[in-house]
Simulated assay, not measured.
Amino acid sequence: MRIVASIRRRIEDGELVPGDRVPSTREIARDWGVALATATKALTTLRLEGLVEARPRIGTVVAATTPARPPRASSRPAPAAERELTLDRIVRTAVDMADAEGLAALSMRGVAARLGVAAMSPYRYVPSKEDLVLLMAEAAFGEQGYPADAPQEWRPRVELGARTLWALYRRHPWLAQLGSLTRPLLVPNLMVHGEWMLSALDGHGLDPVTLFDIHVLLYSHVQGLAVHLEWEAHAAASTGQTDDQWMDSRAPALRSLAESGRFPTFTKVVGSFGDGYDMQLDALFEFGLRALLDGLTSIVDAADGTGAAGTAKSGRR
Protein backbone atom coordinates (compact mmCIF):
# COMPACT_ATOMS: atom_id res chain seq x y z
CA MET A 1 0.00 0.00 0.00
CA ARG A 2 2.98 2.34 0.53
CA ILE A 3 4.02 1.68 -3.07
CA VAL A 4 0.48 2.38 -4.27
CA ALA A 5 0.32 5.60 -2.23
CA SER A 6 3.67 6.80 -3.60
CA ILE A 7 2.71 6.28 -7.27
CA ARG A 8 -0.80 7.63 -6.68
CA ARG A 9 0.67 10.80 -5.16
CA ARG A 10 2.98 11.30 -8.18
CA ILE A 11 -0.04 11.03 -10.49
CA GLU A 12 -2.23 13.36 -8.43
CA ASP A 13 0.59 15.94 -8.18
CA GLY A 14 1.04 15.94 -11.96
CA GLU A 15 4.54 14.48 -11.86
CA LEU A 16 3.19 11.61 -13.95
CA VAL A 17 0.68 12.64 -16.61
CA PRO A 18 -1.59 10.54 -18.84
CA GLY A 19 0.47 8.33 -21.13
CA ASP A 20 3.59 8.41 -18.94
CA ARG A 21 5.04 5.04 -18.00
CA VAL A 22 4.85 4.22 -14.33
CA PRO A 23 7.53 1.99 -12.78
CA SER A 24 7.39 -1.58 -14.07
CA THR A 25 7.11 -4.59 -11.79
CA ARG A 26 10.87 -5.14 -12.10
CA GLU A 27 11.62 -1.51 -11.25
CA ILE A 28 9.28 -1.54 -8.26
CA ALA A 29 10.75 -4.80 -6.99
CA ARG A 30 14.27 -3.39 -7.30
CA ASP A 31 13.60 0.09 -5.90
CA TRP A 32 11.39 -1.01 -2.99
CA GLY A 33 13.13 -4.29 -2.24
CA VAL A 34 9.95 -6.36 -2.62
CA ALA A 35 9.00 -9.52 -4.48
CA LEU A 36 7.67 -9.34 -8.05
CA ALA A 37 4.31 -10.56 -6.76
CA THR A 38 4.09 -7.58 -4.38
CA ALA A 39 5.01 -5.21 -7.21
CA THR A 40 2.36 -6.78 -9.43
CA LYS A 41 -0.23 -6.44 -6.69
CA ALA A 42 0.60 -2.74 -6.34
CA LEU A 43 0.10 -2.11 -10.07
CA THR A 44 -3.10 -4.17 -10.00
CA THR A 45 -4.47 -1.99 -7.19
CA LEU A 46 -3.68 1.15 -9.21
CA ARG A 47 -5.46 -0.36 -12.22
CA LEU A 48 -8.52 -1.15 -10.12
CA GLU A 49 -8.51 2.47 -8.97
CA GLY A 50 -8.55 3.58 -12.62
CA LEU A 51 -5.26 5.44 -12.32
CA VAL A 52 -3.17 3.32 -14.69
CA GLU A 53 -3.68 0.98 -17.61
CA ALA A 54 -1.57 -1.71 -19.28
CA ARG A 55 -0.50 -1.16 -22.86
CA PRO A 56 1.09 -4.10 -24.73
CA ARG A 57 4.85 -3.69 -25.34
CA ILE A 58 4.84 -0.33 -23.56
CA GLY A 59 4.03 -1.37 -20.04
CA THR A 60 1.82 0.26 -17.44
CA VAL A 61 1.04 3.92 -18.09
CA VAL A 62 -1.04 6.63 -16.44
CA ALA A 63 -4.62 6.26 -17.67
CA ALA A 64 -5.96 8.77 -20.20
CA THR A 65 -8.64 9.83 -17.75
CA THR A 66 -8.17 9.32 -14.04
CA PRO A 67 -10.84 9.58 -11.35
CA ALA A 68 -10.73 12.69 -9.18
CA ARG A 69 -10.94 10.57 -6.07
CA PRO A 70 -9.60 7.10 -6.64
CA PRO A 71 -11.87 4.55 -4.99
CA ARG A 72 -10.26 2.48 -2.29
CA ALA A 73 -10.54 -1.28 -2.40
CA SER A 74 -13.64 -2.54 -0.64
CA SER A 75 -13.21 -4.66 2.44
CA ARG A 76 -16.19 -6.78 1.42
CA PRO A 77 -15.50 -10.15 -0.24
CA ALA A 78 -15.40 -10.15 -4.02
CA PRO A 79 -18.41 -11.66 -5.82
CA ALA A 80 -18.31 -15.40 -6.35
CA ALA A 81 -17.84 -14.97 -10.12
CA GLU A 82 -14.68 -12.91 -9.52
CA ARG A 83 -13.29 -15.42 -7.09
CA GLU A 84 -13.82 -18.36 -9.46
CA LEU A 85 -10.47 -19.56 -10.74
CA THR A 86 -10.04 -21.56 -13.94
CA LEU A 87 -7.05 -22.72 -15.96
CA ASP A 88 -8.16 -20.52 -18.86
CA ARG A 89 -8.19 -17.42 -16.64
CA ILE A 90 -4.74 -18.25 -15.33
CA VAL A 91 -3.31 -18.71 -18.83
CA ARG A 92 -4.95 -15.59 -20.25
CA THR A 93 -3.80 -13.49 -17.33
CA ALA A 94 -0.26 -14.79 -17.74
CA VAL A 95 -0.34 -13.98 -21.49
CA ASP A 96 -1.53 -10.44 -20.72
CA MET A 97 1.28 -10.00 -18.20
CA ALA A 98 3.94 -11.27 -20.61
CA ASP A 99 2.57 -9.03 -23.38
CA ALA A 100 2.72 -5.95 -21.17
CA GLU A 101 5.83 -6.58 -19.08
CA GLY A 102 7.83 -9.28 -20.86
CA LEU A 103 8.39 -12.91 -20.00
CA ALA A 104 11.08 -12.13 -17.41
CA ALA A 105 8.47 -10.36 -15.25
CA LEU A 106 6.18 -13.37 -15.18
CA SER A 107 5.89 -15.44 -12.01
CA MET A 108 3.29 -17.73 -10.54
CA ARG A 109 2.92 -15.43 -7.53
CA GLY A 110 2.54 -12.46 -9.86
CA VAL A 111 -0.25 -14.19 -11.75
CA ALA A 112 -1.98 -14.98 -8.46
CA ALA A 113 -1.67 -11.36 -7.38
CA ARG A 114 -3.13 -10.14 -10.67
CA LEU A 115 -6.06 -12.53 -10.25
CA GLY A 116 -6.54 -11.52 -6.62
CA VAL A 117 -6.18 -15.04 -5.27
CA ALA A 118 -3.86 -16.72 -2.80
CA ALA A 119 -0.27 -17.16 -3.98
CA MET A 120 -0.53 -20.96 -4.15
CA SER A 121 -3.94 -21.11 -5.85
CA PRO A 122 -2.66 -21.30 -9.47
CA TYR A 123 -0.62 -24.38 -8.54
CA ARG A 124 -3.87 -26.32 -8.21
CA TYR A 125 -4.26 -25.96 -11.99
CA VAL A 126 -0.69 -25.86 -13.33
CA PRO A 127 2.32 -27.36 -11.51
CA SER A 128 5.05 -24.87 -12.46
CA LYS A 129 5.93 -21.71 -14.34
CA GLU A 130 7.53 -23.82 -17.09
CA ASP A 131 4.24 -25.67 -17.61
CA LEU A 132 2.36 -22.38 -17.57
CA VAL A 133 4.62 -20.94 -20.29
CA LEU A 134 3.89 -23.95 -22.51
CA LEU A 135 0.16 -23.42 -22.03
CA MET A 136 0.61 -19.72 -22.82
CA ALA A 137 2.45 -20.58 -26.04
CA GLU A 138 -0.26 -23.05 -27.02
CA ALA A 139 -2.94 -20.41 -26.47
CA ALA A 140 -1.02 -17.67 -28.32
CA PHE A 141 -0.13 -19.78 -31.36
CA GLY A 142 -3.75 -20.89 -31.55
CA GLU A 143 -5.10 -17.37 -31.95
CA GLN A 144 -4.75 -17.40 -35.73
CA GLY A 145 -5.32 -20.17 -38.23
CA TYR A 146 -5.69 -20.56 -41.98
CA PRO A 147 -8.67 -20.24 -44.33
CA ALA A 148 -10.09 -23.25 -46.13
CA ASP A 149 -10.08 -21.36 -49.45
CA ALA A 150 -6.39 -20.38 -49.34
CA PRO A 151 -4.38 -20.27 -52.61
CA GLN A 152 -3.20 -23.61 -53.94
CA GLU A 153 0.16 -22.40 -55.33
CA TRP A 154 3.09 -23.06 -53.01
CA ARG A 155 4.50 -19.52 -52.91
CA PRO A 156 1.30 -17.67 -51.85
CA ARG A 157 0.69 -20.38 -49.25
CA VAL A 158 4.21 -20.02 -47.84
CA GLU A 159 3.82 -16.23 -47.78
CA LEU A 160 0.55 -16.57 -45.86
CA GLY A 161 2.16 -18.95 -43.38
CA ALA A 162 5.17 -16.71 -42.79
CA ARG A 163 3.05 -13.57 -42.38
CA THR A 164 0.67 -15.36 -40.00
CA LEU A 165 3.57 -16.38 -37.76
CA TRP A 166 5.06 -12.88 -37.93
CA ALA A 167 1.72 -11.37 -36.88
CA LEU A 168 1.58 -13.70 -33.86
CA TYR A 169 5.14 -12.85 -32.84
CA ARG A 170 4.30 -9.17 -33.27
CA ARG A 171 1.29 -9.59 -30.99
CA HIS A 172 3.21 -11.67 -28.42
CA PRO A 173 6.95 -10.86 -28.74
CA TRP A 174 7.92 -13.20 -25.89
CA LEU A 175 6.92 -16.18 -28.05
CA ALA A 176 10.11 -15.93 -30.10
CA GLN A 177 12.21 -16.45 -26.96
CA LEU A 178 10.81 -19.88 -26.11
CA GLY A 179 12.56 -22.25 -28.48
CA SER A 180 15.62 -22.50 -30.70
CA LEU A 181 16.04 -24.23 -34.05
CA THR A 182 18.00 -27.02 -32.41
CA ARG A 183 15.60 -27.42 -29.47
CA PRO A 184 12.22 -26.48 -30.94
CA LEU A 185 9.10 -25.72 -28.97
CA LEU A 186 6.81 -28.75 -29.31
CA VAL A 187 3.26 -27.56 -28.78
CA PRO A 188 0.34 -28.59 -31.03
CA ASN A 189 -0.70 -25.10 -32.15
CA LEU A 190 2.82 -24.25 -33.31
CA MET A 191 2.81 -27.54 -35.21
CA VAL A 192 -0.32 -26.29 -37.01
CA HIS A 193 1.79 -23.53 -38.58
CA GLY A 194 4.58 -25.97 -39.39
CA GLU A 195 2.11 -28.36 -41.00
CA TRP A 196 0.80 -25.51 -43.15
CA MET A 197 4.27 -24.62 -44.42
CA LEU A 198 5.26 -28.25 -45.06
CA SER A 199 2.01 -28.99 -46.91
CA ALA A 200 2.58 -25.90 -49.07
CA LEU A 201 5.94 -27.30 -50.19
CA ASP A 202 4.94 -30.95 -50.38
CA GLY A 203 4.04 -32.52 -53.71
CA HIS A 204 6.58 -30.56 -55.75
CA GLY A 205 9.21 -33.25 -56.11
CA LEU A 206 11.43 -32.07 -53.25
CA ASP A 207 13.19 -34.84 -51.39
CA PRO A 208 12.21 -34.95 -47.68
CA VAL A 209 15.48 -33.49 -46.40
CA THR A 210 15.42 -30.53 -48.81
CA LEU A 211 11.74 -29.92 -48.08
CA PHE A 212 12.35 -29.82 -44.34
CA ASP A 213 15.50 -27.68 -44.78
CA ILE A 214 13.42 -25.08 -46.62
CA HIS A 215 10.80 -25.18 -43.89
CA VAL A 216 13.45 -24.63 -41.18
CA LEU A 217 15.08 -21.85 -43.19
CA LEU A 218 11.79 -19.98 -43.60
CA TYR A 219 10.90 -20.42 -39.92
CA SER A 220 14.33 -19.19 -38.85
CA HIS A 221 13.83 -16.01 -40.88
CA VAL A 222 10.56 -15.25 -39.06
CA GLN A 223 11.69 -16.24 -35.57
CA GLY A 224 15.20 -14.82 -36.00
CA LEU A 225 13.86 -11.34 -36.60
CA ALA A 226 11.09 -11.71 -34.02
CA VAL A 227 13.52 -12.29 -31.13
CA HIS A 228 14.55 -8.65 -31.45
CA LEU A 229 11.01 -7.47 -30.64
CA GLU A 230 11.29 -8.69 -27.04
CA TRP A 231 14.95 -7.69 -26.73
CA GLU A 232 14.17 -4.13 -27.75
CA ALA A 233 11.18 -3.92 -25.40
CA HIS A 234 13.34 -5.20 -22.51
CA ALA A 235 16.17 -2.78 -23.36
CA ALA A 236 13.76 0.16 -23.54
CA ALA A 237 12.23 -0.79 -20.18
CA SER A 238 15.58 -1.25 -18.42
CA THR A 239 17.35 1.82 -19.86
CA GLY A 240 14.41 4.19 -20.29
CA GLN A 241 15.68 4.95 -23.83
CA THR A 242 14.12 4.26 -27.21
CA ASP A 243 16.36 2.68 -29.83
CA ASP A 244 16.83 6.11 -31.47
CA GLN A 245 17.84 7.66 -28.15
CA TRP A 246 20.25 4.80 -27.50
CA MET A 247 21.87 5.23 -30.91
CA ASP A 248 22.15 9.01 -30.34
CA SER A 249 23.98 8.35 -27.07
CA ARG A 250 26.45 6.16 -28.99
CA ALA A 251 27.16 8.80 -31.64
CA PRO A 252 30.70 9.56 -30.37
CA ALA A 253 31.69 5.88 -30.53
CA LEU A 254 30.21 5.54 -34.02
CA ARG A 255 31.99 8.67 -35.17
CA SER A 256 35.28 7.36 -33.77
CA LEU A 257 34.89 4.13 -35.77
CA ALA A 258 34.10 6.05 -38.94
CA GLU A 259 37.02 8.43 -38.52
CA SER A 260 39.54 5.67 -37.80
CA GLY A 261 39.89 4.93 -41.51
CA ARG A 262 39.79 1.18 -40.86
CA PHE A 263 36.27 0.68 -42.23
CA PRO A 264 35.97 2.70 -45.47
CA THR A 265 32.96 0.87 -46.90
CA PHE A 266 31.06 1.09 -43.61
CA THR A 267 31.88 4.80 -43.41
CA LYS A 268 30.75 5.43 -46.99
CA VAL A 269 27.48 3.55 -46.60
CA VAL A 270 26.55 4.95 -43.19
CA GLY A 271 27.58 8.45 -44.26
CA SER A 272 25.11 8.31 -47.15
CA PHE A 273 22.07 7.83 -44.92
CA GLY A 274 21.57 11.52 -44.22
CA ASP A 275 19.17 11.39 -41.27
CA GLY A 276 20.42 7.96 -40.26
CA TYR A 277 19.40 4.38 -40.91
CA ASP A 278 15.82 3.69 -39.89
CA MET A 279 15.70 0.01 -39.01
CA GLN A 280 12.16 -1.27 -39.45
CA LEU A 281 11.71 -4.93 -38.58
CA ASP A 282 8.46 -5.24 -40.53
CA ALA A 283 10.16 -3.99 -43.69
CA LEU A 284 13.15 -6.28 -43.10
CA PHE A 285 10.79 -9.23 -42.64
CA GLU A 286 9.08 -8.57 -45.98
CA PHE A 287 12.37 -7.89 -47.79
CA GLY A 288 13.96 -11.06 -46.45
CA LEU A 289 10.88 -13.18 -47.18
CA ARG A 290 10.78 -11.98 -50.76
CA ALA A 291 14.52 -12.61 -51.25
CA LEU A 292 14.25 -16.11 -49.76
CA LEU A 293 11.29 -17.07 -51.93
CA ASP A 294 12.91 -15.64 -55.07
CA GLY A 295 15.95 -17.82 -54.40
CA LEU A 296 13.91 -20.90 -53.49
CA THR A 297 11.69 -20.68 -56.57
CA SER A 298 14.36 -22.15 -58.84
CA ILE A 299 14.91 -25.06 -56.43
CA VAL A 300 11.19 -25.87 -56.17
CA ASP A 301 10.61 -25.45 -59.91
CA ALA A 302 13.58 -27.66 -60.74
CA ALA A 303 12.36 -30.39 -58.41
CA ASP A 304 8.86 -30.03 -59.83
CA GLY A 305 10.13 -30.34 -63.39
CA THR A 306 8.88 -26.86 -64.33
CA GLY A 307 12.20 -25.05 -64.26
CA ALA A 308 15.02 -24.82 -66.76
CA ALA A 309 16.94 -27.49 -64.87
CA GLY A 310 14.26 -30.06 -65.61
CA THR A 311 14.06 -32.71 -62.95
CA ALA A 312 17.41 -31.92 -61.35
CA LYS A 313 17.54 -32.73 -57.68
CA SER A 314 19.47 -31.09 -54.95
CA GLY A 315 21.92 -33.98 -54.52
CA ARG A 316 23.42 -32.09 -51.60
CA ARG A 317 23.21 -35.01 -49.22
Rank of each mutant, 00 (worst) to 15 (best):
2 R>D: 14
9 R>L: 11
10 R>Q: 15
13 D>A: 15
13 D>S: 15
15 E>A: 14
15 E>K: 13
16 L>F: 07
20 D>H: 15
20 D>K: 09
21 R>M: 08
23 P>V: 05
24 S>M: 09
25 T>K: 00
29 A>N: 09
30 R>K: 12
30 R>F: 06
34 V>G: 05
36 L>F: 02
37 A>T: 11
38 T>I: 06
38 T>N: 03
39 A>M: 05
40 T>Y: 03
46 L>D: 04
49 E>R: 10
50 G>E: 05
54 A>F: 01
54 A>G: 11
60 T>W: 04
66 T>S: 01
70 P>M: 03
70 P>W: 03
74 S>P: 08
78 A>Y: 03
83 R>I: 03
83 R>K: 13
84 E>D: 09
90 I>F: 00
92 R>S: 08
92 R>F: 00
94 A>N: 03
98 A>G: 05
103 L>Y: 01
108 M>Y: 03
112 A>I: 09
114 R>H: 07
114 R>P: 02
119 A>T: 15
121 S>Y: 00
122 P>M: 08
126 V>C: 04
127 P>D: 10
128 S>P: 06
129 K>L: 15
132 L>M: 03
133 V>E: 01
136 M>E: 09
136 M>Y: 00
141 F>R: 01
147 P>H: 03
149 D>T: 10
149 D>L: 02
150 A>Q: 13
153 E>I: 06
156 P>Y: 02
161 G>H: 09
167 A>N: 11
172 H>M: 08
173 P>C: 07
180 S>M: 07
188 P>C: 09
189 N>L: 11
191 M>L: 15
197 M>T: 14
198 L>W: 00
199 S>W: 00
200 A>G: 07
202 D>Q: 12
206 L>A: 06
208 P>G: 04
212 F>T: 14
213 D>F: 02
218 L>H: 01
220 S>Q: 14
221 H>G: 06
226 A>Q: 02
227 V>T: 13
228 H>C: 02
235 A>D: 13
235 A>V: 13
236 A>F: 01
237 A>M: 13
244 D>P: 03
245 Q>A: 15
252 P>M: 08
257 L>E: 11
258 A>K: 11
259 E>R: 12
261 G>Y: 01
265 T>M: 09
266 F>G: 04
267 T>I: 11
268 K>M: 14
270 V>R: 15
276 G>H: 04
277 Y>A: 08
278 D>Y: 00
281 L>A: 09
288 G>I: 11
292 L>H: 13
295 G>P: 10
295 G>H: 07
296 L>P: 09
299 I>D: 02
300 V>I: 10
300 V>D: 05
308 A>P: 06
308 A>F: 07
309 A>M: 12
310 G>M: 08
312 A>T: 12
313 K>S: 14
